[in-house]
Design a protein around this nucleic acid. Structure first.
Lengths: 232, 232
DNA sequence: CGCAGAGTTGATTATACTCAAATCCAGTGG
DNA sequence: CCACTGGATTTGAGTATAATCAACTCTGCG
């Protein structure tokens, strides 16, 4: 059980300024639906908060570049990162008036924010976005199911193998890539401790399944077949 | 595993009432709209399969009565039950052409099945239904997030306490209720073994937090405050 | 009454956690 | 250019929680 201490506390006012600044662009939406996406761009620096649990959920987001983590905390600081959102992913769309989880930039990132509206309105106003939002929700739910299987029933080795293969499929061109997040993020995503994550990665490297370098952020998958066997 | 096509359409009118009853938003619509979004009722006996992983995902479902479990399996048989669906819950809606998880009746249950269509079509055809399906997706995703926190970061005691409070809120009139599922279902939902579930429940009973009776399916929550403290 | 499935209880063990310390690395300033 | 620093990561030793293995009890039902 490890405590997560919020290293970064950016204020909502910063977000508000960005929103207001972007509103003119949104008002013109409809005139040129194809060329102008109905969203406001926002750039984030490593660790910066996008929104926090309990804040009004007036907007949802789409990642343009970089990585965003969404997570929940227990009162004693234990953290569960439910998802790392990469380019193209939509996150932060919720049924209630308040966010039930928090979102932060893992590295320097860019997102586009959309005002939350009734689905019928979105669908009528911008059918393409409506389809995208719906598909994204189902996709996120599907990934959540996979992750619950991992958290509930897989061993540490199986979790790490699954994670490496998944992240590789999402960000790697070939079989090598740089992890955008640190060990504590991986641990809090996989329901493990940083020590177990580190030990397991080291073990994989010793067994020749992967190669680690440069503060272990750079990873090469040497033996995907073996990793898939381990994935369970 | 069977096709629900022509044979079932004859019962469409009977199912129509169920549809109307099931979707409050549609109740206000004229009877002439009933024919369009057809839902077919299906009764299930304890343990019966609704659909299996890998089968075509042509339909999604809404629980009318009883309990349905959706789950995923690992190749060696380990199981993760991601959700118990109770009356009113919508499940089985997926982005791909095939189901990525399985669904079975926990007890004798009744469901209504709806043919999956493109969201744009649903939204245009019946905006209220679109809103409801979307709300259900967001709701399921929200519950999935809560459950990932449980699976990734909570202790056995905390998991059981959370489970009891949640299921109680969903099915109990007061503070007592009958569990529809057996120990192995609870274990596979909470990422524990049946022994740990049993031991923890017994411990709670010894500590006066709950009362167990009648093959331990009947539960009374005696000290909700203490359970909430344990919930973390 | 006996059977089978479900649930409980006990003893032991394994996996991952905790606590602790060493090492690595990027960034900084002399 | 290089030593210094603090955060990140690795490694080690010991431990705790929940798993495993096993026996026993309860319950519903023919």
């Amino acid at each position: 059980m490890q405590a997560y201490t919020a290293a970064n506390t950016s204020r909502a006012s910063a977000a508000a300024a960005v929103v207001m600044q972007g509103f003119p662009a949104m008002r013109t939406r409809g005139m040129d639906r194809v060329a102008t996406p109905s969203g406001v761009r926002r750039t984030l620096t490593r660790g910066e908060e996008v929104f926090a649990e309990g804040e009004p959920s007036d907007f949802f987001y789409k990642v343009v570049s970089g990585t965003v983590r969404t997570y929940k905390l227990l009162n004693d600081g234990r953290r569960q990162i439910d998802e790392f959102h990469l380019g193209g992913d939509i996150f932060g769309l919720e049924p209630g008036e308040q966010h039930r989880f928090s979102a932060e930039a893992v590295d320097d990132a860019t997102v586009v924010m959309f005002r939350r509206r009734r689905f019928a309105v979105i669908a009528q106003d911008d059918p393409a976005l409506g389809d995208q939002v719906m598909a994204s929700l189902m996709h996120n739910l599907q990934r959540a199911h996979d992750h619950m299987l991992l958290l509930g029933r897989k061993s540490a080795q199986e979790r790490i193998a699954t994670f490496l293969l998944d992240i590789s499929k999402r960000i790697a061109k070939g079989d090598s890539f740089d992890l955008p997040m640190q060990r504590s993020d991986i641990a809090d995503h996989l329901g493990l401790t940083i020590e177990t994550v580190s030990r397991t990665l080291t073990q994989f490297a010793r067994d020749g399944l992967i190669k680690l370098a440069a503060a272990s952020r750079s990873v090469v998958l040497c033996d995907k077949t073996a990793l898939r066997r381990l994935e369970a």
